[in-house]
């Protein structure tokens, strides 16, 4: 396999006629994990782009129960029109950054136009809050149903315990430190070690599965006046509807960063092998030799 790093091989061909190192295939991901993973990709893509459309309807974030024009904002994407020359900006906690071309002002049909996120980042591309909401809520339902299926399966099948829960020794600072260094040098696990997720993978995936994604759902629900009447405790947990909206945005940003790193890691540690394992389940690893 072209992407597998070469093993410093000590081809100790022993008794049998098997040649080492050799490539063997293991079953990396169960069919439920694979299906729910790709459905999740679909859902999160639509949720992000339609979410940016919804954000564009009021591109300011606040903290607390209320917040509207005139109330102090924690984040604003806006535009100034200086004698016909529109300029866009991002303002976070008093710090203003010029973002003309991407945020605040971007081209629509060749014309610089005031809009928070650019048209290539929203569904639909033009300003249409009603349509953005339709896409968002449809895929939110699909995402929640998909997530419940995944969680139920993972708990029952032992996927969490077997594949995702870090072992005690993996959590030692020394071990984690070594993994961070290895990652920084782009040295990925090989041979026996490649059969399992490493500790950084386990911790990252767990953080996404049990913290970030549920946080997206819960902060999303807190923005709903209907849900707030039914489950008032949600509003208290997040400190108000506007805080929930802000946390929704921050968590979505964290997920975007996760996806960027995740895809980079997929590419750096063997694009084809990784993608195939998430489609067919088969994952190739290099065996150095019988017992080492």
């Amino acid at each position: 396999m072209p992407q597998m790093k070469d093993v410093e091989m000590s081809a100790n061909a022993s008794n049998d006629n098997v040649q080492y190192p050799r490539t063997i295939f293991i079953r990396r991901h169960s069919v439920v994990t694979r299906l729910t993973h790709w459905l999740n990709v679909l859902c999160l893509s639509f949720l992000l782009l339609s979410g940016l459309q919804i954000f564009n309807a009021h591109p300011e974030l606040y903290w607390g129960h209320f917040g509207a024009d005139g109330d102090p904002a924690v984040l604003t994407i806006g535009s100034d029109d200086d004698a016909g020359f529109p300029s866009g900006f991002l303002r976070v906690a008093g710090l203003q950054i010029p973002t003309t071309g991407v945020l605040g002002v971007s081209n629509v049909d060749g014309e610089p136009t005031a809009r928070a996120f650019p048209s290539w980042a929203t569904i639909p591309s033009f300003q249409d809050l009603a349509a953005g909401r339709r896409w968002h809520f449809f895929f939110a339902w699909l995402f929640v149903i998909n997530g419940i299926l995944y969680l139920g399966f993972s708990l029952l099948s032992g996927h969490f315990k077997r594949d995702l829960a870090p072992k005690v020794n993996e959590l030692s600072p020394r071990h984690l430190g070594r993994e961070v260094l290895d990652h920084a040098r782009l040295r990925f696990p090989e041979g026996e070690e490649a059969r399992h997720y490493n500790a950084l993978q386990k911790l990252t995936y767990l953080a996404v599965i049990v913290i970030l994604l549920p946080l997206m759902v819960l902060t999303g629900l807190t923005m709903s006046p209907g849900v707030d009447a039914a489950l008032p405790a949600l509003v208290d947990v997040f400190g108000g509807r506007q805080s929930a909206r802000t946390i929704h945005f921050i968590t979505a940003s964290a997920l975007v960063i996760f996806v960027i790193v995740h895809v980079a890691m997929v590419v750096l540690s063997g694009t084809w092998n990784n993608i195939r394992s998430m489609i067919t389940g088969r994952y190739a690893i290099q065996e150095k030799g019988p017992k080492s």
């Binding site: 919804i54 954000f55 309807a57 009021h58 300011e60 606040y62 129960h65 209320f66 917040g67 509207a68 024009d69 809050l129 909401r133 923005m223 006046p225 509807r241 506007q242 909206r245």
Partner: peptide
Amino acid sequence: RHDCVEGWS
């Protein structure tokens, strides 16, 4: 609390 569809309250 009055919640506008645009996002403000």
